[in-house]
C-alpha cells in the first residue's frame, strides 16, 4: 500500500502530499485488517488483526496531525483534504473486494509483509531526513503576534511527535515480523518469493498510476479529446430536457427503461 515518494524538507507541498499519502496508506491498511478480523473464524488471529488495525488507525491520525501542522492553505494549488472515500479512487482500497475476501490467509499474510516492510523502509528513511521535526513551514505566513506562541507550541508538538514516531516504527517492525513468520510457516519458500515479487510489482504499478497526476492528466486529456471529437457532432441526440409539467407514470413498461 506504500509507494516511494520524493520528499524534501524545503518543499512543504511535497511534504504535505506525502503525509496525505501515508495517511491514506495507513487508513486503508487499518480497514483491510479490520475486515480480516471480522471475517476470520480463528479467535486468536481475529484479535491479532484487530490489534493491527487499531495500530494503523493510530498511525493514520499521526500523519493527519503532521499534515495539519503543515498549514498549507492555498486550496488553489493543492487539495489536501483527507476524505476516506478517496482511498478507493487513489487505488489504496479495491472497489470490488477486500483483500481478505480475495486471497487465502497465507497469501494475505505475504501481502501484509510486503506492505509493512515497504512502510518500515519509508518511515525509517523519513526519520533519517528528520522531516517530522520541521512541522510548520507556513507559520511565517501567520500574524507576527502569534509567532512566539506558535513556535513554543511547535517545539512541544515536535517532542510529542518524535515519541509517537518511534512507537510507530516499533509497531511496523512487529507487524512485519508476525506476518512474515506466519507466511513462512504456511508457504513454501519459492511460493513465498513469487508472491512477494508479485505484490511488490503490483503495488508499485497501482500507485504509480493512481497518484501520478501528471500522467493521469495527459492520458485523460488525450482520451477525452478523441471522444469529444467523435461525439461532438452527435451531441444533440443526448438532449433529454423534459417538459415542465408531467404526470409521473407508474407503469411497469416505462419503469423498465433507463431513460
Amino acid at each position: 500500500m506504500f509507494k516511494n515518494v520524493i520528499i524534501n524538507n524545503k518543499n512543504s507541498n511535497q511534504k504535505s502530499t506525502a503525509f496525505l499519502d501515508f495517511a491514506y496508506a495507513e487508513f486503508s491498511s487499518a480497514i483491510e485488517m479490520l475486515q480480516a478480523s471480522k471475517l476470520i473464524d480463528n479467535e486468536k488471529l481475529a484479535l491479532g488483526f484487530l490489534d493491527h488495525s487499531l495500530d494503523e488507525f493510530k498511525h493514520t491520525n499521526f500523519f493527519l496531525n503532521c499534515l495539519k501542522n503543515q498549514k498549507v492553505i492555498n486550496p488553489n494549488d493543492l487539495n489536501l483534504k483527507f476524505d476516506t472515500k478517496l482511498a478507493y479512487n487513489l487505488g489504496f482500497i479495491n472497489k470490488n473486494y477486500f483483500l481478505f475476501n480475495k486471497y487465502s490467509l497465507s497469501q494475505f499474510c505475504v501481502f501484509i509483509t510486503i506492505n509493512e516492510a515497504e512502510a518500515l523502509k519509508l518511515f525509517t528513511k523519513i526519520k533519517k531526513m528528520k522531516i517530522i521535526k520541521n512541522i510548520d513551514d507556513k507559520i511565517e505566513l501567520e500574524k507576527i503576534i502569534d509567532e512566539e506562541k506558535k513556535h513554543l507550541n511547535d517545539i512541544n508538538k515536535n517532542q510529542f511527535l518524535d515519541v509517537q514516531y518511534s512507537e510507530l516504527l516499533e509497531d511496523e517492525k512487529k507487524h512485519v515480523f508476525l506476518s512474515s513468520k506466519f507466511s513462512k510457516k504456511h508457504n513454501k519458500w519459492i511460493i513465498n518469493k513469487f508472491l512477494s515479487m508479485k505484490f511488490l510489482i503490483l503495488n508499485k504499478f497501482r500507485h504509480f498510476m493512481s497518484r501520478n497526476t501528471y500522467i493521469n492528466y495527459v492520458v485523460n486529456f488525450l482520451i477525452s479529446f478523441f471522444i469529444i471529437i467523435l461525439i461532438f457532432p452527435l451531441r444533440f441526440a443526448l438532449n433529454f430536457r423534459e417538459p415542465r409539467k408531467k404526470n409521473i407514470s407508474f407503469s411497469i413498461s416505462k419503469s423498465k427503461l433507463m431513460l
Binding site: F221, F225, I228, I231, F232, L238, N239, R241, M258, L259
Partner: peptide
C-alpha cells in the same frame, strides 16, 4: 434512470466540450 442521468450531464458538458473536458472525461 442512469441513462437519463448520464445523457443530461454529458449533453450539458458537450455544449462547451473543451472548456469542460475534465467533466467530459
Amino acid at each position: 434512470k442512469p441513462l437519463l442521468s448520464w445523457s443530461r450531464l454529458t449533453y450539458f458538458s458537450m455544449l462547451k466540450p473543451f472548456k469542460r473536458w475534465k467533466i467530459n472525461s
